[in-house]
């Protein structure tokens, strides 16, 4: 603060601080607070707002546990029906498949990042990076649409696989519970760089001599990765995982294009409460459930793997 004043003078410092405060309070805190407050109030006709029926309650939140429905779960060849609240079910699947999206990206990105940071000839790296980044200049919508077309029922992918003799019957990539494959493939494609770059960054800071030292002391390749590379890159891996998980859970565009009524994403439920039913209070409540549960989930996972928030910020 004192340093700011010394540098820019009282007037300019005042303006900077005023603008920052305005941005923070009016554009960030207030809208959230308004949404948060309204999530505890019932959805009422305009005439009743502020009336005797407009009282605070948890009812918007509780609806997630209501309206049970029968679902069939197939596990190890057995199929058994369970009865869960519809929204709860969508919520659980969203978290589950977001985790799967995150893990898939991780599995794809770790070797790629290692290759880029430690194997590839540095002269060719810039070309390589360009090839990775250029597709990301296309809008998310178009990229999602590309997969929408590729994965269409009896679409290009199915035709290619059929001609290669890998499958005989066409697959519903975007239908049913298996229909999540379309969402996952596209989410991975759309958000993969958010996984790649943090891991790549942490790997470039790893001294190559460490790898050779491990190898020299008798470590096999996997041992070197497990004991030296992964611990070093843990902050980058965590950062990539948190980002991709949060983006996947919160994505609306991709599931809108690539899911079906039986493979819905929780954001679609929030959207439909807000815009189809016009119930902003209920939508807000669901949005906060998603936010809180995901935050807790991420913190617990980070605790489990012993990564601090400060590590990620590095």
């Amino acid at each position: 603060m004192a340093a700011l004043i010394r540098r820019y003078g009282t007037g300019l410092t005042g303006i900077i601080i005023a603008l920052t405060t305005f941005w923070l309070i009016v554009l960030v805190i207030l809208p959230y607070f308004d949404l948060f407050e309204s999530s505890f109030r019932p959805y009422l006709p305009a005439a009743d707002v502020g009336g005797p029926k407009d009282v605070y309650s948890l009812s918007n939140y509780i609806t997630i546990f209501q309206n049970p429905a029968e679902f069939n779960i197939g596990l190890f060849g057995f199929t058994f029906p369970i009865s869960v609240a519809i929204h709860m079910w969508v919520f659980v699947l969203t978290i589950l498949f977001s985790v799967l999206t995150t893990l898939t990206s991780l599995v794809l990105c770790y070797p790629l990042a290692y290759y880029m940071a430690k194997v590839i000839d540095p002269k060719r790296l810039s070309t390589f990076l360009l090839l990775l980044v250029v597709p990301m200049w296309v809008s998310e919508l178009l990229r999602a649409f590309a997969w929408f077309i590729l994965l269409a029922f009896k679409g290009p992918l199915t035709i290619v696989l059929q001609n290669l003799g890998i499958i005989t019957d066409p697959i519903h990539w975007t239908w049913g519970l298996g229909g999540f494959s379309g969402v996952i493939v596209t989410l991975v494609y759309v958000y993969i760089l958010f996984m790649l770059f943090p891991i790549y960054n942490s790997m470039t800071s790893l001294d190559t001599n460490q790898l050779e030292a491990a190898q020299d002391l008798g470590a096999k390749s996997w041992q070197t990765h497990w004991r030296v590379v992964v611990p070093h890159c843990k902050p980058g891996i965590a950062s990539g995982c948190v980002t991709v998980f949060m983006l996947a859970v919160g994505s609306l565009l991709v599931p809108t294009l690539l899911s079906s009524p039986s493979s819905r994403w929780f954001t679609e439920v929030i959207y439909s409460r807000m815009f189809d039913e016009n119930d902003w209070n209920g939508g807000a409540a669901y949005a906060f459930i998603l936010l809180f549960v995901c935050t807790i989930f991420v913190s617990l996972t980070m605790r489990l793997f012993k990564v601090g928030l400060a590590d990620i910020a590095k």
């Binding site: 001599n209 050779e212 030292a213 020299d216 002391l217």
Partner: peptide, 17 residues
């Protein structure tokens, strides 16, 4: 390979973990 040779190297920068 280096992990199979009866040698041990001390690196210029030591490369301690």
């Amino acid at each position: 390979g280096p992990n199979k040779r009866p040698t041990a190297m001390i690196f210029q920068n030591l490369a301690l973990f």
